[in-house]
Each structure stands twice: as C-alpha cells, then as structure tokens.
C-alpha cells in the first residue's frame, strides 16, 4: 500500500496510542514516544514494522505516541492510519 497523504488514527488516552503516517520517498522512518519505552520500546517497534509489512507499506514516515497500548491496539491504530492515508474512499 502506498501512503498518499498524512493521516492519523488513535487517541492519547491511557492504553491507546496515536499513530500518524506521512508520505516518504523511499523507506520506513519510525519515531516512537512511549510512557513504557524502556520496557516495551522494542515490542512496539516490532509490532509497527510487522503491521506495515503485512499491509505492504514500503515507504512511510510513521510517528507513534504511545500511552501504554497493547500490541493488538498498536497494530489496529497503524492499520487504520495507513488505510486513512489512501486518499478518497481508499479502503482496501
């Protein structure tokens, strides 16, 4: 999937995260802010990259503001943001 425009999904409430994706020229750029970065930074990174891979996103600038979301929540927010970045009516 190609990131056509900037889009975000999620919230900054506890146990949620806000994921913003932006178009990027060639690669995946990932930035993570998290209240549990020292304990779960690697898990979060892994979940985001895996989700992008499953959606066939090869180039994107991704920013995650995490408030202690579980992997299933992070994956959901990444997927929703990517789908929203598809342009008009661009689901699937």
């Amino acid at each position: 999937m190609h990131i056509e425009k900037t889009a975000a999904a999620g919230t900054l409430e506890s146990s949620d995260c806000l994921v913003t994706v932006e178009p990027s020229a060639s690669e995946i750029k990932l930035e993570i802010e998290s209240v549990v970065l020292s304990q779960y930074g690697e898990e979060i990174r892994g979940t985001v990259l895996e989700t992008l891979k499953s959606l066939h996103v090869q180039a994107a600038s991704v920013h995650v503001q995490d408030k202690g979301a579980l992997n299933c929540v992070i994956a959901a927010r990444v997927e929703a943001a990517v789908l929203r970045a598809q342009g008009e009516g661009g689901q699937e």
């Binding site: 999904a9 999620g10 579980l70 299933c72 929540v73 994956a75 959901a76 927010r77 997927e79 929703a80 789908l83 929203r84 689901q91």
Partner: peptide
C-alpha cells in the same frame, strides 16, 4: 467507525 471496527477485530483475535 473505521478505526473502531479494526480495533474490535484485533481485540477478538486476542
């Protein structure tokens, strides 16, 4: 609506 159904789907998976 779009984010909620993806979240609920992922929740069901867990």
């Amino acid at each position: 609506k779009d984010t909620a159904r993806i979240l609920v789907r992922n929740y069901l998976r867990t």
